[in-house]
Design a protein around this nucleic acid. Structure first.
Length: 542
RNA sequence: GCGCGCGUAGCUCAGUUGGAUAGAGCGUCUGCCUCCGGAGCAGAAGGUCGUGGGUUCGAGUCCCGCCGCGCGCACCA
């Protein structure tokens, strides 16, 4: 049993004895001030109201009844308005290092998801050009969220939705055709809203067939760009379980079927030649057109049909990672799903929206890529700074905030670069074992070492951080916020560097060295597990 | 104008879902150090958490108003 669990159990027992209501949540947290101990609890403050007593009086009673010895606690203090501060025996803290080494790769994982199926949809770019940095942010966020969910017991399916049926695909086809005609010596204009990038010329050049056969041009262009995007994703190391084509919704009649179901449910009406959905019944500020006067559907209708398939495919949760410029779809898609009245939960799907990405080099904003013309591509970034740095930078800020991608910092091999700093901490831990082996020292991180020797302040601090990893992972996954793990890793790396610089492992007296080897291994494991949850490699040397 | 998001140290940002005296890195200042791996360590200065109210034992965190910035407001996607 972990130290915190022992305290929690003891607090729970006493709370019940004092007459606390059933289900009182005993919360333990890390005090901000080190002077306040290793763990603190606010139970006494929580119980003040139901017990109709002063918080400090309750705290005193709890302190009096607390069996410190059994819980591994050295001191219990009542502080401030009624907090209980606990200080653990150093040996109890140190013992955690052994548990981490014993758990290894599985350390930090949990089973809160109980194997339930979750669909995580991300990137979902239109096949009209190479992936841009916004897609990159989605790829990094989506993949990390998916992995975090896997590490907390969910059965995750990564999905990519190709909008291959809309007007923008017509623009793509027309753009390529314009280049084809141009090559044939005819004057041709890229249409309004068309695509001007260099890649359009490349696609035109690789087209073999009749330039007047627009359907063939279109099919060729979509195929070429899907391939292109696959290469972008491969370079990023992201793989999907499912690629879903918007066009298949039409081919299989699912759009029609959804419209019919909505009509049958009585949630639609005809007005001025169009078919409307009563989205105002579900929180929208005005009703929305589903079928336009020309008989075609507005974009959110296939989106609703698509999400119905997610539900019908058995996904208890669906998470969509999108740019914040799409936030207007949230209400509409959810409204459509609710209007169907088929038991889909209200918050389905969940959305993770992110703000814009700005790329800077030398302090100046970079806007242009050679091939894409008007925007920086994911591939440009990966080629320049590497996959790991791109991933870390894209998730180190919460999605709600705009992201500035500093290329100079991302490629820098210095400790100012957070990715480098974290990976370096991992490599250093590995280095201890490598150098030890080279010197012929037995460096097995044996869990039977006497861990009570790990009493230095830096050691205790590092171990406490390592102990927090499972809770950080669970919190990060629950909130769908990978940046928490990014921050956590940075702080943990800092503590690992600090310890490494101050206290040597190799060359110490045997028993102490054996204990420190366990700590080095524990730190290595946590850093590696955390990096892997973010889709970043943990090099053994750099 | 309406909707969503953001506003925390000179700069870049954390802030564990409402806890105690709001933190880190960079930069600045002072003093050490040259170690398994490229520098690091100790300390200092730096804040009205945009602003004004509210909720309560307690607010950076929740609610309302205002200011500023971003995004979206189509029978486009």
């Amino acid at each position: 049993m972990k130290p915190a669990d022992a305290i929690r159990a003891e607090l729970g027992r006493i709370a019940l004895e004092l007459g606390a209501p059933e289900g009182t949540d005993v919360v333990l947290e890390r005090p901000r001030e080190a002077a306040h101990g290793d763990w603190a609890s606010n139970v006494a403050l929580i119980l003040a109201r139901p017990l109709k007593q002063k918080p400090r009086d309750i705290a005193e009673k709890i302190r009096a009844q607390f069996r410190a010895e059994e819980a591994g606690v050295a001191t219990v203090e009542v502080a401030g308005p009624g907090f209980l501060n606990f200080r653990l025996r150093p040996a109890v803290i140190a013992s955690v290092a052994g548990e981490i080494v014993a758990a290894g790769e599985s350390y930090g994982r949990s089973d809160v998801g109980r194997g339930a199926a979750v669909n995580v949809e991300f990137v979902s770019a239109n096949p009209t050009g190479p992936l841009h940095v916004g897609h990159g942010r989605q790829a990094a966020l989506g993949d990390a969220i998916a992995t975090l969910l896997e590490h907390t017991g969910w059965d995750v399916s990564r999905e990519y939705y190709y909008n291959d049926a809309g007007a923008q695909i017509d623009n793509l086809a027309a753009s390529v055709r314009a280049r084809l005609l141009e090559a044939r010596g005819e004057s041709a204009e890229i249409p309004e809203g068309g695509y001007h990038g260099e890649y359009i010329r490349e696609i035109a050049a690789s087209f073999q067939g009749d330039a007047d056969d627009l359907a063939a041009v279109r099919a060729h262009a979509v195929r070429a760009l899907r391939l292109e995007q696959d290469l972008d994703l491969a370079a990023f190391g992201v793989t999907f379980d499912m690629y879903f084509l918007e066009s298949s919704l039409y081919e299989e009649g699912l759009v029609e079927k959804t419209v019919a179901a909505l009509t049958r449910a009585g949630k639609t009406y005809e007005h001025e030649g169009a078919l409307w959905l009563r989205t105002t019944e579900f929180g929208d500020d005005k009703d929305r057109v589903m079928r336009k006067g020309d008989g075609t559907y507005t974009y959110f209708v296939p989106d609703v049909a698509y999400h119905v398939t997610k539900w019908e495919r058995g996904f208890k949760r669906a998470i969509d990672v999108q740019g914040a410029d799409h936030h207007s779809t949230v209400t509409r898609v959810r409204a459509g799903l609710q209007a169907l009245g088929i038991g889909i939960p209200e918050g389905y799907p969940e959305y993770v929206l992110h703000q814009l990405v700005t790329v800077t080099r030398g302090g100046q904003e970079v806007k242009i890529s050679k091939r894409a013309g008007s925007y920086v591509t994911v591939r440009d970034l990966i080629d320049e700074v590497g996959r790991d740095a791109v991933r870390y930078f894209f998730i180190m800020r919460k999605g709600d905030s705009p992201l500035i991608f500093d290329v100079d910092l991302a490629r820098s091999q210095s400790e100012e670069n957070p990715v480098y700093y974290i990976q370096m901490a991992h490599a250093r831990m590995c280095g201890i074992f490598r150098v030890g082996a080279e010197q012929g020292i037995a460096t097995a991180a044996a869990v039977d070492a006497d861990l009570s020797l790990l009493t230095e302040a830096e050691e205790q601090q590092l171990i406490k951080a390592l102990e927090d990893y499972p809770a950080e992972l669970a919190g990060s996954a629950a909130a769908l916020e990978p940046q928490r793990i990014a921050s956590y890793l940075l702080e943990t790396a800092r503590l690992a560097h600090l310890w490494y610089h101050k206290h040597h492992v190799l060359g110490q007296e045997e028993a102490l060295m054996r204990a420190r080897l366990v700590l080095a291994r524990a730190a290595q494991i946590v850093l590696a597990n955390g990096l892997s949850a973010l889709g970043i490699t943990a090099p053994e040397r750099m």
